[in-house]
Design a protein around this nucleic acid. Structure first.
Lengths: 253, 253
DNA sequence: ATTGACCTTTACGCAACGTAAAGGTTTATG
DNA sequence: CATAAACCTTTACGTTGCGTAAAGGTCAAT
């Protein structure tokens, strides 16, 4: 039995454009071209197309499919396993996204100030990105991609509970800042406790802790308006005081 | 605080190209353009970008994000719910795919590989054809076309699981043949068990069972080279022994 | 004054096709 | 037998969300 493009398209349920494209990229060549330049497919091509569509259904890229169908079975299995891992990762990511959306909807409906939720999410992302940008490369070189990815994932997937705890710690820090600021001395006990709490808070959300990073963040607080606004909210000059306390705590001043 | 593209890019962790693109599609316009044509972003834009990145993280398309951020919150919630449903569908689909990949890998590995799978397919076809040729006519006359066609279809569509079970049974038969052959007597208990298993195996793949057909197949085994090769593989003269056992089992000898 | 680090716009490239457009071939119908 | 309808062909632009030049202006520092 022989088929022209549209016949095969009808038979297999894909479009003729798809078949031409598969021809173009060398994934599925017709058995022959007739005198008028028409693509003619035979039984062999039908079977091959079945296989191709099977893999496509599994979300394997066409590039991968080309590799797969040109290889012996054991390599095909290896390729499938690799693909399987990718799918699992994809699902894990999707699960987290779904969880986040659920929480977001709940908080929007429950009225628990979505704004805070979102701010938090944004803050997390921002932190991750900054962390990535500033220290990611070195850390990735030192500890490998997996370590970094895992901790980022952990941070992203932080639960509501964790968030509550972290938020509580954040509040405490603001209160401590007020108290410490009154001493006027960033080296005072209270100020140093403040710095310690800040480190704790940081580690909560920031699995890749380093003195350098902490110091860098402290400097950034002073340089970056939204952060100064936040820490100066209750105490004028609080941001700078916090930075000094942290630098002393880290033995960098 | 004001930012140029690269400043904001660094702050937020996206690329400057991304920001220009967002400007281009009207997702995030800079607060103003300075005299040199530079894009200048302010605090409002930073906050908006946070929101945008939050939704992006949730795999909302940029087009959707444009709609969302231009709407009041209750509509935002509705949009999120809609998106949530899409995500759930996506996950359900992904789950199915993963299950299929798992099964495929298992069958490729656990199975005696693809090659056997193909052989099996060929075997099935051959069996159907032979069945057709030798008994088809009579059976069609006796039971009607539909019966035959349906059982052929059933055989062709035999599942991987069935194949596994059948393959296991096939293995068992080979082992039993060795044991039975040692007795030297096709009427022995072991040989009769062999014959019974063979019938079971046959019925597995062959919905139209009859003593005559079974006997005919047994004779065919002896006459047909590929079959003798298969059953003589471990035991010389095994095929004839099997035939005799079957004929006795059927009360035909 | 020059260098280097910024910024700009324009534009091609990616995956896997959908969708014309412009034109040749085959088949059906009057 | 002519012509229309139904096929087929290649070429090429559009899609999404940017990455990556290329070609050229602007700004800060040496």
């Amino acid at each position: 039995m022989e088929y022209t493009v549209n016949k095969l398209a009808q038979l297999s349920g894909v479009s003729s454009r798809t078949l031409r494209y598969y021809d173009q990229i060398g994934l599925l060549k017709p058995a022959r071209i007739n005198s008028s330049g028409y693509r003619i497919y035979g039984q062999k091509e039908v079977d091959l197309l079945q296989q191709i569509l099977f893999y496509r259904e599994l979300e394997v890229s066409l590039e991968e499919i080309i590799k797969i169908i040109n290889q012996p079975t054991f390599n095909q299995t290896a390729a499938l396993k690799n693909h399987y891992n990718n799918l699992k990762k994809k699902r894990a990511r999707l699960d987290k996204i779904i969880a986040t959306v659920e929480r977001t909807i709940a908080s929007k409906e429950g009225g628990i100030s979505m704004e805070d939720q979102q701010k938090f999410e944004g803050f997390k992302e921002k932190m991750i990105e900054e962390n990535e940008q500033k220290y990611g490369k070195e850390i990735r070189e030192k500890y490998g991609d997996e370590t970094v990815d895992v901790s980022n994932a952990k941070l992203r997937g932080m639960s509501q509970e964790d968030y509550q705890a972290m938020a509580a710690l954040g509040e405490e820090i603001l209160l401590l800042l007020e108290k410490a600021y009154e001493t006027g001395d960033p080296a005072s006990d209270v100020a140093q406790e403040l710095a310690a709490k800040h480190k704790e808070w940081l580690m909560y959300s920031w699995p890749n802790y380093s003195k350098e990073a902490h110091a860098g963040l402290a400097e950034m607080y002073v340089a970056d308006e939204p952060f100064t606004a936040y820490y100066d909210k209750n105490v004028k000059g609080g941001t700078e005081f916090l930075r000094d306390a942290i630098l002393i705590y880290l033995g960098m001043k």
